[in-house]
């Protein structure tokens, strides 16, 4: 049988146009484009009508233009009717940060510890290289202000207390954007089955280890801790979490011990990746502010004891946040799920 195309188009066109207009409204309206119940029912009806029309045109007519138009409409409507998106609540900023971020961190703790091990290995390598081969310092530390003798730098910094009239806001913004870019790269290199991520984490560890060993060997431990701890207590964990995200991505690609297809593994890892990197960005914004407006001030302007206490308290709070925050909600959900089962 062949379809009466003219009648078919005449009858279907108003409904297709209505579906097209409804989809266009959803596609261009952003978050405001919400449907009320009647409109949602109408969308579902129009989607089913267009699907039925597509089935008919494919069975009886094989007319390429109408078929292509209906496929396009059904494809767009299918995406609206069947979606993975759960609720927008997840993206309510506050709940996302205090529950979603720590929750994702805890779910992927294995990758975090792997990032910690890679960093420690890098730090040990960097420290060993600087201590046993002083000529390695210019190779490992590509920063001018770290190449000289630590004691000279400390003396210079303490002459004016770090308050040298520098452009703190600009410095802070540069730190934030640069660090977030590096964090994004660390995550993105997870696409190399995690290898690129491990290289970046290891290299970060090498720099950290080299600097720490250099300052400790020069007897400048107090300055070092007072300088690094206020921002490092947030920045270093943030980079570790970025590494964690990259390793989660690499792990999803490798799929060791997971029988699900790669597409499904990546799909289940995706929300956690986005959450982790979002949390990392927030932490790095804070770290950038602290590094520019606090870490750069030294004695006599700011006592080292105060800076170290600030850093230690911050690290404790961050650890508590990552370990505990949102746990109650997760337990309640698990209990409800258990009761439901």
């Amino acid at each position: 049988m062949i379809l009466d195309l003219h009648h078919f188009v005449q009858e279907g066109r108003p409904l297709w146009d209505e579906l097209d207009a409804l989809l266009l409204r959803l596609e261009t309206g952003g978050k405001r484009a919400c449907l009320d119940l009647e409109e949602a029912k109408r969308l579902h009806y129009l989607y089913q009508r267009a699907s039925a029309d597509l089935a008919r045109v494919m069975t009886f007519a094989a007319e390429p233009e109408i078929r292509a138009h209906l496929e396009s409409l059904v494809g767009r409507a299918y995406g609206e009717v069947h979606r993975h998106r759960r609720t927008d609540d997840r993206w309510a900023v506050w709940r996302w940060f205090v529950a979603g971020f720590p929750g994702a961190f805890r779910r992927r703790l294995g990758s975090f510890w792997m990032a910690v091990v890679a960093t420690i290995a890098g730090a040990a390598f960097g420290a060993g290289a600087v201590l046993f081969d002083p000529e390695a310092k210019p190779v490992l530390l590509p920063f001018d202000h770290l190449l000289g003798n630590p004691a000279d730098r400390v003396a210079e910094e303490e002459r004016d207390g770090g308050s040298d009239g520098a452009m703190h806001a600009t410095f802070s913004a540069s730190l934030m954007t640069h660090n977030i870019r590096v964090a994004i790269l660390t995550l993105a290199l997870g696409i190399t089955w995690g290898f690129g991520t491990l290289v970046i984490i290891f290299y970060n560890g090498v720099i950290l280890g080299a600097v720490v060993a250099d300052y400790i060997a020069a007897g400048q431990t107090t300055f070092l801790v007072g300088w690094l701890l206020p921002h490092g207590s947030v920045e270093i964990p943030a980079f570790l979490i970025a590494g964690q995200a990259g390793l989660v991505l690499g792990g999803a690609l490798i799929g060791r011990g997971d029988r699900a297809p790669m597409v499904e593994r990546l799909r289940s890892a995706g929300p956690d990746l986005a959450t982790l990197i979002g949390g990392v960005a927030v932490l790095l914004v804070w770290a950038g502010i602290v590094e520019s407006f606090l870490s750069q001030y030294h004695e006599p302007v700011l006592p080292y004891a105060a800076k170290i206490t600030f850093g230690a308290v911050q690290l404790t709070l961050l650890a508590a946040f990552l370990i505990l925050s949102g746990r109650r909600g997760t337990l309640l959900t698990a209990r409800r799920g258990g009761a439901g089962a």
Binding site: G79, R83, W91, I184, T192, G196, L249, V263, D272, A274
Partner: peptide, 25 residues
């Protein structure tokens, strides 16, 4: 053009973030 889920469904926020961050590679 339109980005869609590989199964034809709408994008999730996670998918949007991940595909655009891996862009740097």
């Amino acid at each position: 053009l339109r980005v869609v889920d590989a199964a034809g469904m709408a994008l999730t926020p996670g998918q949007v973030v991940v595909r655009n961050l891996v862009r740097v590679v």
